[in-house]
């Protein structure tokens, strides 16, 4: 009997559902910290900061675990863009711009997903590096901001990186829900 290989392994699904709520909580609390407003669902800076720190801790550790997992099961080959990805890009863009009806097929991830995942893999550590001096203002005073001066420049980079991360996660959620329900199911059950 042939055993079907899951689209997403159990460990990757668990990690996805660990960092997914953490990312959303970090985004909402981060925007509150940037410009306090009840819109983000927090009553005080105290609760926003606690949420931000806890969620970023969860995010950081699950990110590291996911990074390790990608190396361990060689999943990074599926995640990182390759020459083939670049070659497939025009066809993918044409389809997403409704210029063709024919949906291009990809072994697992389409070029958009690959670029998004790779961008997040870069942006999340940058958020960590610029967030640390703001989290521990004394211990990390000069570490990353040595090039930029004191603490205010990394604060700006942290905010802009957060904006970029949010701008990437929004289409990720949108396409997850609208592109293929079978693929969406696989992130819950593992199988299409």
């Amino acid at each position: 009997m042939k055993i079907e290989k899951p689209r997403h392994s159990m460990i990757n699904r668990l990690l996805h559902w660990t960092y997914a709520p953490a990312v959303l909580a970090a985004i909402a609390s981060g925007f509150y910290i940037h410009k306090p407003s009840p819109f983000w669902g927090f009553k005080s800076m105290d609760s926003a900061r606690k949420t931000h720190f806890i969620s970023t801790y969860i995010l950081a550790f699950s990110y590291l675990a996911r990074f390790y997992s990608a190396l361990w099961d060689k999943n990074y080959r599926e995640l990182l863009p390759s020459r083939r990805t670049l070659a497939a890009l025009p066809g993918f863009v044409k389809y997403e711009l409704f210029l063709t009806k024919k949906k291009p097929e990809f072994p697992k991830y389409n070029p958009g997903q690959k670029f998004l995942i790779t961008s997040l893999a870069i942006l999340l550590p940058l958020l960590g590096v610029t967030g640390l001096p703001l989290y521990a203002v004394d211990a990390w005073q000069k570490q990353p901001p040595a090039v930029t001066g004191g603490l205010n420049p990394p604060r700006k980079i942290h905010y802009l990186t957060g904006v970029a991360t949010t701008a990437l996660i929004a289409p990720h959620i949108y396409f997850s829900v609208t592109d293929s329900l079978a693929k969406l199911k696989s992130i819950f059950t593992g199988y299409k």
Binding site: A164, T166, A167
Partner: peptide, 24 residues
């Protein structure tokens, strides 16, 4: 301003997703 960048990114993201959804 940094807020200007944030707002622009928000509007572009919202409009892009909205346009794609309308197309879909």
């Amino acid at each position: 301003t940094a807020d200007g960048v944030g707002k622009a990114a928000g509007i572009i993201t919202f409009l892009s997703i909205g346009a794609h959804l309308a197309g879909a």
